[in-house]
């Protein structure tokens, strides 16, 4: 998997204990304005925002949620990342430059 980064302008907020992504600045033109994400999605998001490498994400998820089945965690994590890439909230390293 390519390295991931958060699209500039996408902000993770919390409303009534729920995790909500808001597209501001330049992200407004390319992403859905708002989306709710799960607790585990927010955890993955925070790791990416802290600069975690793609290869570090699965071990971090396994540790955080004490999941015994790595395949199950991987499926969940990949599903979230795919969804975030499709909606444009996340970018693969170099993707933004390619579009420019």
């Amino acid at each position: 998997m390519e390295e991931l980064k958060i699209r500039p302008g996408v902000i993770l907020t919390e409303i009534c204990g729920e995790h909500v992504l808001v597209a501001a600045k330049e992200a407004r033109e390319v992403c859905p304005y708002v989306s709710m994400i799960s607790e585990s999605g927010a955890f993955i998001w925070r790791q990416i925002s802290r600069g975690a490498k793609s290869s570090d994400l699965l071990p971090l998820v396994l540790e955080e949620y004490e999941i015994e089945d790595p395949e199950q965690a991987k499926t969940m994590m990949n599903g979230f990342i795919r969804q975030m890439l499709e909606s444009g909230y996340l970018l693969e390293e170099g993707e933004e430059n390619e579009k420019e």
């Binding site: 808001v22 501001a24 407004r28 304005y33």
Partner: peptide, 8 residues
């Protein structure tokens, strides 16, 4: 519609 992070 927010244009800055603080607005979001």
């Amino acid at each position: 519609r927010p244009e800055e992070e603080w607005e979001a």
